[in-house]
Every structure is written in C-alpha cells, then in structure tokens.
Design a binder for these strands. Structure first.
Lengths: 207, 207
DNA sequence: GTCTAAAAGTGACTGTGGTCATAATTGATC
DNA sequence: GATCAATTATGACCACAGTCACTTTTAGAC
C-alpha cells in the first residue's frame, strides 16, 4: 500500500509529509465532518505549516483524490487478476464492482465528497486518473468481447463508458437518496445486469 | 419564461431582485469566467448589498440551479407535448434530448459549473428538482412501455435512471474531454440507441 | 392617516482559503 | 569540510465568502 522501496531521503520525507497530511485530514473528517474541518486544523494535526498543505493539494477536497487513486489502483489489480484466469468473466467482474460498493456504504459523507471530487476531476481534460479508469474499462470490455460474452459490434470504449455511467450514476443516486437509502448492492446488480443483457451477443444454437 | 401574472408588489420586487442578480451573475461569468467573478462584483452590478445575495442563493455556484430549473421545466413541457401526440415516442424523445445538448455546446465552461451544481444537488436528499427530473423520466418510460416500445418487465424507474445516467455521463465525459471534444450529439444518439435496443421488447411475429 | 408584524435589504465584521516572498533543507560538486 | 542550485517548508499577508444584528420597506388592521 505504501511502496517506499528505494527512494532518496528527500523523496521519503515528501511521502511522509503527504501521508501525515492525509492521515490528519481523514481523521478530522471522520471526527467532525468534512465541512467543519478547516485546512488550518489539518495542518496543526499534521504538524506542518499551511503553505505546505498547498504544496501537496490545491484545495481541501483534493485529498479525496487519494481515495480515488487507491480505488482505481485496486480495481486495476483485481481486474487484472480476473482477466488472467479463465471461465466466465462477467460474473466475476460484476461481483467485484458490487464488492467495491462496500466502500461507499461504510461512510456516506466521505463518499459524497469523494464523488464530488471525482466529478471535478472528470471535468479536467486529460486527467491521468480518469484516463486510467477509462482504459481499464475498455480493456475489460474487450476481453468480454473476445470471450463471446458481449456483442462485438459495439466499440469497447462506448460499452465501457455506458457501464461506467450506470455504475457511477447508481452510486450518486444512492448517496443522494433519503435515509434509509435503497439497497445499493442489489440495485447495482440489477442495473448492471440489465445493461449487460442488452449487450449480450445474439444467441447461437449450440452452447 | 417569467411568469409574473398576479403577484403582490412585494413578490414582484423579490422576483425582480432575483432576476437582477441572475442577470448580473451570468453576464460576469460570460465576460470574466466563473472563478474570476466574485460575489461582490455580482452584487455591485446587480446593485444590491452582499447580504442580499445570500438571501437568494447559498453560494455563488447556486445561481446555476436556475439553469437546471429552466432545463427541467423545458423538458417537462416538451416531453409533455410529445406524450400527448401519437406515433412512435422514442425517436421524438431521443431527438429532443439530443437537441437539448445544444445548450452544453454553447458554453462549455458555464455548462461545467452547471453540471457540478447539479451533481451537488443530486447529493442532497429529497432535492425537489431532482425529484421532478426522476418523475419525468419514469413517466416517459412508462409511456414507452405502454406503447410497446420498451420491455414491460423492467421497472420504469430503473430503466429511466439508466437512461439518465448514460445521458448525464456522456455529457460529463464530453465536458471533460480535451479539445477538440468528440461529437457530442452523435455520441449521445449512439449511446442512447444502444441502451434502448438492449431494452427493446422481444420481437413479435407480426408487424 | 397611524400602528404593527413580517419580509426584505444592508454592510460592518470575522474566519478561512489561498498566495508568495523568504528561509531552511537537501544532495551533489569541488 | 565549503559552495551552490534545486527542492521543500514556512507563516505573514490579503481578498473573499459568508454571517448577523440592525434598518428599511411592505401590507394589512384600525
């Protein structure tokens, strides 16, 4: 999770400072809420000057980019593992994404802010993280197509975007739904299945 | 567009003030950009005190809620008109939404902020505008189902949400795509068609 | 007209976000 | 060790967002 390997002292210190800021920020967010936490409080807890915070993050909510980054990295790893193995991909991919939803169920408020920040990043042309996410999705869809689990006549990018939109939209809808919210994982499964079935390849006689 | 009908003087003045603030805000947004415009500048141009601004909007970007409101109202009207008439609904609905995309093409920066604000509203439980939007979508889908243009075995709410997610996701993707962006309307048509075809009712022998 | 309560408007005030010139630290070179 | 350039840290500083106690306006009641 923290690849410190063989960095110079300077680089290590930099990592440490960033880590301290992140830890302080999330601890305070969880304790007092995101809105109620000021950057100065984060800095005090992390024992750095205010200016230092801005050397690492352009604004308070940008620390949520760290969560997105971890999220995407995890997804890359887990999807990579699934693609290596044989058998039907779809049920595994679907269940993986449903499993990932646990993260959102854990802390709604934090998740809302992470989502807002993710959306902000989406509005940034050529954001590297969004790029990675897009490529990951397209890659997965190409594999589904290669194994005959998805129609081959739709561009992988488009199909992947549609899946992503539905996944993302469901999460946002859930985060905004009044308490108690609808069952997230169940709804995710149903919507994703709905979309997949619409993109299923034409049935062949055999099997 | 401005239903002044028979309001008391007080109500008329209130409307006027709000209108002045909105006009001033959008004029400045277009001239100097949203970030660069301060609330104080908006107030000066609108000739109101700063406190007055906050009587109408909780923060600067909330003025974009006005655009969303108009957007949804327009959609309600236009969709209502379409539903009243006969014939195939889908091509008309699809073209309507594609036509609505013109709004986003007109001013990308403004659209980004409107989208961000819309997303923020989505995170607010029981936001009345989001409710209206949801109900409108579900209603339209129910009509599609009633006329046999969409499978009847999927809940209208779910299908509507999926359409909404894809529409919204495509717009966000377009707003964040590097210049020159991909052709928005073309992509919208293709993605929406893709989803609809996946939800088409099983073909009957006749026709 | 006067009186009153409620609504709308006001701007001085305050706390925070964010900047930037400067200081301190690092590691490479001699 | 001394010197230097590049990187990182600092906190005084300023502009702005947002609040709130107060003033003004409005629309009835009499």
């Amino acid at each position: 999770m923290t690849p410190e390997l063989d960095l110079s002292r300077r680089e290590r210190k930099k990592e440490e400072t960033k880590e301290r800021i992140l830890e302080a920020a999330f601890a305070l967010f969880r304790k007092h809420g995101v809105e109620a936490t000021t950057i100065e409080e984060i800095c005090e807890k992390a024992d750095v000057a205010k200016g230092t915070f801005f050397n690492y993050f352009p604004h308070k909510e940008a620390v949520f980019g760290y969560l997105s980054e971890r999220w995407v990295t995890d997804a890359e790893t887990r999807i990579g593992e699934i693609l290596e193995k044989g058998g039907h991909l779809w049920p595994k991919l679907r269940d993986l994404f449903i499993e990932f939803a646990s993260f959102y169920e854990e802390d709604r408020e934090l998740s809302k802010h992470m989502m807002m920040e993710w959306t902000r990043q989406m509005h940034t042309p050529d954001d590297p993280l969004c790029r990675r996410w897009d490529e990951l999705g397209a890659h997965a869809v190409r594999q589904l197509q290669a194994r005959g689990e998805l129609r081959r006549d739709v561009p992988a990018e488009r199909a992947s975007q549609v899946f992503g939109d539905v996944y993302h939209g469901t999460l946002v809808g859930w985060l905004g739904s009044p308490q108690p919210p609808f069952p997230l994982k169940d709804e995710l499964r149903k919507r994703m299945t709905m979309v997949l079935e619409g993109l299923a390849p034409p049935a062949k006689e055999g099997k």
